[in-house]
Write a protein that binds this DNA or RNA. Structure first.
Lengths: 332, 332
DNA sequence: TTGTATGCGTTATCAA
DNA sequence: TTGATAACGCATACAA
């Protein structure tokens, strides 16, 4: 592989000078600069970023760890991150965890070895022990959507509490009194906040919570399907159901169809997080949506700001959710 | 930062030995190995992969360049790649090009600097000059979905030609005679093959092509919208339309609604590539789908095989498309 | 303004 | 089986 030493030789200067030209530093005479650049162009030389990261202590790399890149919620966020990052010549390394702790640990280990400059993570964990222990304290960390316990770090999330209230308000206004709820993954902050918001909103409307109407889920389709089947099997099923995220709603949808029922005639269904493209094809599912692309961009910026030195205390950015009314809930 | 030298000192051995332990090499006595590993564990030492890549000449990194990670077609492919890669301790660096040549060039340059071990790319270019010139010839290259001219490399794609025929056969069987076509991005192999397949199929059915029924597109929503508006403005609009990819179909859908028409009552619409989740919510759009997740996995494997030495000549993997019949086309 | 020398954290080579 | 020592490709302090 050709190195700056080879270039130096060809240009009749020292390697240091070549380095200076490449990095656009001052203190290089216009003549030598031109001389070096000519060789650079002619040879099509590409400096080795890994080598330079060794001395610079920066890899210009930011790691993104999410449960599932296939979920449009995360896809859009990643897009937002990538846009910001690549505009600043920073690469994005991607990791899927599949909501699996071991995979998450593996990802953390890996990105540490690669010395990523920053980490943006939607963690699958309830507690942050594994994060704090795997991650060196210096590396900028931005929590996305979810906040594991025991960790002070930047956080970009939406107002889940308020989102839940919007959903319940909406359903109550339509006349629903028995509102089922499929919970999110156990131990995840987002899941808890959404449940709490739901419970509070019920209380506000003078509707005592009915334990039987609250079933567990895992933020995945399968969990949503099982949860919905459980609700439908009730002696007195709810007239509508809220799922804790978009994927669960898809599973619930499948369950409902499986039972030969239809939405919203037989049962209403709403959820957290939009389906993006899916909602364009057929504006069907009523949801409270988060400004996903923006969230990604914000997360990237928070990370990059820390990179550029300005050390600050943990910041929390809370976005507003929007109710997108479509056709999956009816008046009763 | 602590290095293997520090570990060596603490363990009372040389750095070389520490390196051997870390890399699980032979020729380390069980006792010293245990001694070193104890220190490794106690300190939570994480080796610097960039430094090691310097000598090993491998970064354990594979770059993926796609037009838009937000398109479920690519999302699923990336998922397939990531699964394969991370199983082999290989990281995925992600780049969006937005169908923009400059961004693609930037991505190529960047991944070269990072010395990615391999590249999987769905190129936005008609010609591969910029790829061959930016990329060193040694780095394993897998073309995804699209094949720019002037480049011999591994290729993973689907049988676009055949897919087009399936679509036309299907529509003709429904009684359609005026079949509109919104083309893909100019100069992209996939776009060309799909158009050719369409034309041939028409001929097979004794339907001469009507120039007015073929409009241009760009593989993006906006292009699909404009194309469809053009078709709808015709004195004698087609009874059905094929778009060259899923995004264009979404745009076409918007155009149709904008004109106050509905599918499939007023006009039928089918396309290449599935919408994944969208099709789960509401199985609406009839498409010919590619086995996306698998394609990603295959692409990753082709790349990794080359990495592991077994040099071979360019391979081409052609997948079969599947017609997924849904509700966006009606009998006439 | 330029060059020399050294270090960044590993691995590979060669002796011991 | 282990340890010096020299790369790997680049950046930087220091000297010139």
């Amino acid at each position: 592989m050709t190195s700056i030493y080879d270039i130096a030789k060809m240009a009749g200067v020292s390697a240091a000078t070549v380095s200076r030209v490449i990095n656009d530093e001052r203190y290089v005479s216009p003549e030598t600069r031109e001389k070096v650049q000519k060789v650079l162009r002619k040879t099509g030389f590409v400096p080795n970023a890994n080598a330079s990261s060794l001395t610079k202590k920066r890899t210009n790399t930011i790691a993104v760890v999410v449960p599932d890149i296939t979920n449009p919620f995360f896809t859009e966020i990643i897009r937002g991150i990538e846009e910001q990052a690549s505009a600043q010549k920073i690469a994005v390394i991607l990791f899927n965890t599949d909501e699996d702790m071991d995979k998450e640990r593996g990802a953390l280990r890996f990105l540490m070895e690669k010395r990523a400059d920053a980490l943006i993570i939607a963690s699958t964990a309830s507690f942050a022990k594994h994060i704090t222990s795997h991650l060196s304290a210096e590396i900028p960390l931005v929590l996305l959507d979810r906040q594991p316990k025991g960790l002070k770090a930047d956080l970009v999330r939406s107002d889940d509490h308020r989102g839940a209230q919007m959903l319940v308000d909406y359903l109550v206004a339509l006349g629903h009194r028995e509102i089922g709820f499929i919970k999110g993954k156990d131990g995840i902050s987002t899941a808890r906040l959404r449940l709490e918001g739901y419970l509070q909103a019920l209380e506000k409307h003078g509707l005592g919570p009915d334990e039987k109407l609250i079933v567990s889920g895992d933020f995945k389709q399968e969990g949503g399907r099982e949860g919905m089947l459980k609700l439908l099997a009730l002696a007195c099923p709810p007239t509508c159901v809220i799922t804790s995220n978009n994927l669960e709603a898809l599973g619930a949808l499948a369950a409902i169809r499986q039972m030969g029922l239809s939405i919203p005639e037989d049962i209403s269904l709403v959820c957290f997080d939009d389906l993006e493209l899916a909602s364009q094809v057929y504006p069907f599912l009523t949801v409270v949506a988060q400004p996903v692309r923006t969230m990604g961009a914000v997360a990237a910026q928070l990370a990059l700001e820390r990179l550029d030195g300005n050390v600050q205390k943990p910041r929390e950015v809370v976005m507003q959710m929007t109710l997108l009314e479509r056709k999956s809930a009816r008046r009763v």
